[in-house]
Design a binder for these strands. Structure first.
Lengths: 208, 208
DNA sequence: CCGAAATAATTAGGAATCCTATTTATTGGA
DNA sequence: TCCAATAAATAGGATTCCTAATTATTTCGG
């Protein structure tokens, strides 16, 4: 009866519209468009990548991606290098100009960040935790490519501590942390086994 | 330090990519594209609308919207009627065909809904509550147009009851409910005053 | 009551995404 | 060695999406 899933989906849909619209604004004044900005962002976060994996990451066809990369190439923001391991493939990397431009782009629309900052920390922690579980589930269902979430990381030890404010532990930085510090895209991420991912998910669900 | 806002924003960004990509798939087989599907969806939920408000709701320019409406018009899925109240304006409405097609479209990508269904109810409730507050804040900041949220509704009485599972009350259906039954887009919504919206937000934040 | 400013929509012009299908080159297994 | 699979580019086309300009209408100040 509560229909919670549909309402959450509606909220995500609403935010999607906002994200795209806001993205146009912030990005257009730098001569880009949302698709190009997303490519730059992905390259900045994850480093050089093959086009095929970029296409998968951004959820567009390889042909579309090729179009967009060609645009960026013409602007001198990315470069193509042959992949030494595979003669068919090409690796796309940011140029210095591209990296500088990317660094100047906001990570998210300012009003969204400020709205998020106004959420109480427990509220934000709960949201982040739920979104982590959601993205993990989508990844598990092969609906989205592999992400770099705490909840799928070797270093993540949920509920190792008794401290309610910081029950989890990160083995990489060797520190305790709480839901509000969960990561969606952590540079130090190391994928763990399927078994352990499932165990972590079960543990989080049990406590939630 | 926790950087929670950025991580949540990253999650929303990731879901945005997924939403658009998934939308293409489900919608393309019906001869539509995401923009057109969103127009049909909005008309189905909210009824006939002027183009200017459709454009605002979907976050595109009036010119873009005009393009998309022309496409839908050519397919016979919507009709334009002159607005009796304003000779400049046009009201766009679903045709019978359009309504039938829209009804057959999934509200959200199936893997997303099933991932959401797998969230524990408390987790989902917390997420919905946080997303409600987030969308309310964006609306208050004039970043998005007015939505039909419980938390901005005349009928919403937060924490009227002692029952932890169903503390809120809806004056329209005269029933108690919990976070998991909060609505993002409620057909029975009636906008309340700015003062009361602020009071509700403060109350929710205090408890959260 | 009239003119100016604002508003709703369309049109013009153009760039770029995005699709599917096809082609080319390369890889890797049988 | 041969053949299927893969990576990318290309072809072709529909459509979104933008800004700017145009037309019609409404609203509001004087």
């Amino acid at each position: 009866m509560p229909d919670t899933s549909r309402q959450i989906a509606a909220a995500i849909g609403r935010l999607t519209l906002y994200w795209r619209a806001a993205s146009w604004q912030t990005v257009a004044e730098r001569g880009l468009n949302p698709a190009q900005a997303e490519i730059l962002g992905h390259l900045a976060r994850r480093g050089p990548a093959r086009q095929v994996s970029l296409a998968a990451a951004l959820g567009v066809s390889a042909a579309s991606l090729s179009d967009s990369v060609a645009s960026l190439l013409a602007k001198g923001l990315v470069a193509r290098h042959p992949d030494p391991k595979d003669g068919r493939a090409v690796r796309v990397a940011l140029t210095e100009t591209g990296a500088a431009l990317q660094a100047a782009l906001p990570e998210a629309p300012a009003p969204l960040l400020s709205a998020l900052d106004d959420l109480p920390e427990t509220e934000a922690g709960a949201a982040l935790r739920a979104l982590s579980m959601l993205i993990r589930a989508l990844q598990e269902a092969r609906a989205i490519p592999v992400q770099r979430l705490c909840v799928t990381c070797t270093y993540f030890q949920p509920y190792r501590h008794d401290d309610a404010a910081a029950p989890h532990h990160c083995g990489f930085v060797d520190a305790a942390f709480g839901d509000a510090a969960l990561r969606i895209d952590c540079a130090d991420h190391e994928d763990t086994t399927e078994e352990r991912r499932a165990a972590i998910a079960a543990r989080l669900a049990a406590v939630g």
